[in-house]
Simulated scan of single mutants.
Amino acid sequence: MNSLSNRASQRGFTLIELLVVIAIIAVLAAILFPVFAKAREKARQVSCASNLKQIGLALLQYTQDYDEKMMTDWDGQHSYKQSIQIYMKSAQLWSCPSNPHNQEIGNAADPAQGMPAIVRSYAANPRLICPGWAGPSPGIAMINEPSTRIVICDSTYEWGVMYTDWNPLNGRHDMRDNGFAGHTDNMDCLFMDGHVKGLKPTATTTPVNMWGTMDDNTGGGDCDTGWPAKYVSGINCTQVSPGQVAAAGELQQKYQ
C-alpha cells in the first residue's frame, strides 16, 4: 500500500498537462511581447525627444549670439549641425536610437576645424534653416507663430535640411521619402519656441500647415510659392497643402 502511494505521489506531468502549460505560456508571450516592444520604443522616443530639446537650446543660444538670425544649412564648408557644436559639446545628440540610419554619416568630420562627423537622424525645415542658395534664413522676429513652426524633426535624409515639398509634375514626394515616423507611427518635432512633441506626420500638415509654403499653395503673401520668398518669408504660411497632406499620409503608412 505504501509502495503504491509513493508511486502515485512521484507521478510526473502527463503530456496533455505539459501541452496546456506550453499553450498558456505562448498566449501570455503573444500578449506581452508587443507591450514590451512598445515600452522599449517609448523609452527610445523619450531619448530622441531629449536630444531634440538639447539641439533646440543650442539653436536658441546661436541666435542670441548672432542678432537673432537663424543659420543657413551650409556655410560653404560645414553644416549648421557642425557649426552649433560649440553650444552642444556632443555630436552624439544627433543620433536617434530608433532611426535605422543613426550610424550613417551625413556630414563628414573636419578635424582641422574641430568639426565632428554628424549621423543621419534629424533634419531641419528649409523654411527656417534655409539652403544657402535660397538666401538668408529668417530672423526670429519674422516668425509669427513660433509654437506651430517646426524647426527640426526626425528624418532619414543625409543632409542638413529635410525637403518637405510635393510636386506631382516631377514625381517628388519629399515628405514621404525623407521623413521618419518610427516612434509607433509618430515623428518627434522641435518647434521654434523650443518645445518638442511627437506627432503623426499628417498632424504636421493639417488642420495647420506647420512647415510653411509648399508647392501647391495658392500663392500671395505668406504663401508665396516663388523664389526666394518661398524659403525666407514662406515660414509663416499656415494654409494647408493638399499635396503635402497626401505625402504625409504616405509617410505614415510606411511605419504602420
Rank of each mutant, 00 (worst) to 15 (best):
Y80T: 07
S5W: 10
I152E: 09
G171I: 04
W159V: 07
M187T: 13
C153M: 15
A23L: 13
R40A: 11
G219P: 11
S90P: 00
R172F: 05
S3G: 12
D185I: 04
G114S: 06
A117L: 10
G12I: 12
G234S: 06
S90I: 00
N107F: 12
Y87E: 09
H195M: 06
A30C: 10
C130I: 07
Q252A: 12
H101Q: 12
D224N: 14
D65I: 00
T238A: 07
C237Q: 10
S47N: 12
D73E: 15
S83T: 08
D193S: 13
T148D: 07
W159P: 00
S98H: 04
S50P: 00
A37G: 01
G182S: 06
Q253T: 08
Y157E: 06
Q239L: 05
D222C: 05
A247M: 02
D222H: 10
T63N: 05
H78R: 09
R40H: 02
P207I: 08
I22Y: 03
N51G: 07
Y231N: 05
M175W: 15
A109C: 03
M192L: 12
G179C: 08
V196D: 04
T205I: 00
S147Q: 14
A246D: 04
F180P: 02
G179K: 03
Y231E: 10
Y87T: 11
L4W: 04
M192E: 06
A39S: 09
I86R: 14
A134P: 09
G221R: 08
P131E: 07
H173W: 08
D174M: 05
D215P: 00
V21F: 05
I235C: 08
N125M: 01
L251G: 02
G76F: 07
T218N: 09
I84K: 04
S147M: 11
E158M: 02
G226P: 07
V46C: 00
I86K: 15
D188R: 03
I150T: 03
P131N: 12
F191Y: 15
A247H: 03
M88D: 09
T202Q: 08
A26C: 04
L199Y: 13
H183W: 05
G132A: 11
A117E: 15
P131D: 05
A26W: 01
V161S: 09
Q253V: 02
T72Y: 02
E250H: 01
A37Q: 12
N6V: 13
E68C: 02
M175R: 03
M70K: 00
P111W: 03
L190T: 08
G160A: 15
W94V: 08
A109K: 06
T164H: 14
G221N: 14
S5H: 10
R149I: 10
A141Y: 07
I105D: 06
F36L: 13
V21D: 05
H78N: 09
G179D: 09
R172E: 13
G132R: 06
Q10E: 14
T218V: 12
I105E: 09
P242R: 02
Y231V: 01
A8L: 15
W166K: 00
Y122L: 09
M210N: 10
K69N: 04
S9M: 06
Y255P: 00
V240T: 13
